[in-house]
Design a protein around this nucleic acid. Structure first.
Lengths: 146, 146
DNA sequence: CTACAACTATTGCAAACGCAACAATTGCCA
DNA sequence: TGGCAATTGTTGCGTTTGCAATAGTTGTAG
């Protein structure tokens, strides 16, 4: 007879809860709807802005979005003028997605809001505690990615 | 000119990443498909198993699942025989969702796997570090709740 | 060099989602 | 008490999702 799970002390539950709160808060604070963006589009733009142009499969890996969804999502971002999609030079089965000036301008508006979100989430935590939290999360992730 | 976001050191990104890894790992390890469950159904059953019978709106709050989705999700769980849905006695606009013996039996199989998931995620972390991680996540959540 | 496996992206399709509208009930305050 | 706002759940509807199948390309073993 397994003991019941105490959810309020169960790691996956705690993470899911905070994750949703972060999404909700950011979506509202950044007023993503106004820009015609979803949270997933934001993630793709953030990845492109941070790591430069990438293949769809790489974006998929970074954001945990399915490749078929990514294909359609990039199409929408192209339609919005935030990214370009072009055939790779080194391999014509790949495409390369890159952020446009318009996409970059959007990020200039959103990044400060994203930073503010992190501050809100970590209010009452010392800088050291926030760093510890990040470090622990990074170590947890590694436990799945070997 | 805002500085670019360093994703690998950005809290929401780290949480999203670990969250997805947890879902993926658990779905596979528990072979949810075999039981006809989705991860959201698991969450609902876990909430019921942990906190006892609840209204749909409460389950919705606990799991971050939209109320309309919850309505249909409970219907599916009823069809599977894992929960019952009945009108509340104190308020006839509310329904009360409760887990059934069959649902409980399912949980007996899944809970050990859930515990194992937590161990996998926290491999290489001391018990104290895991406790710290949970505590920090709980504090972060509170920053959004009030 | 050839054949076959792996990789990358796209599309078809059924299922699931979320918002908005609605119905039914309850709470509240004036 | 009467009426109006809030709560709870369900359904309609258009959109989105993820899996599977497909096409096209590249890598590789023999």
């Amino acid at each position: 007879m397994a003991q019941p799970l105490d959810l309020s002390n169960y790691l996956p539950y705690l993470i899911n809860r905070v994750g949703f709160a972060l999404v909700e808060n950011f979506t509202a604070a950044a007023d993503l709807k106004k820009s015609g963006l979803t949270i997933d589009m934001w993630r793709v733009l953030a990845a492109l802005s941070n790591r430069g142009e990438q293949r769809q499969v790489d974006l998929s890996g970074m954001t945990s979005i399915d490749v078929s969804t990514m294909s359609r999502l990039v199409s929408r971002l192209v339609r919005l003028g935030c990214v370009t999609r072009s055939r790779s030079e080194k391999s014509s089965r790949e495409v390369v997605v890159a952020i446009t000036p318009k996409g970059r301008a959007l990020m200039q508006r959103l990044i400060p809001i994203a930073r503010e979100l992190e501050r809100t989430a970590s209010a009452g935590l010392s800088a050291k505690e926030l760093a510890v939290a990040k470090s622990l999360l990074a170590r947890m992730y590694k436990n799945f990615a070997p």
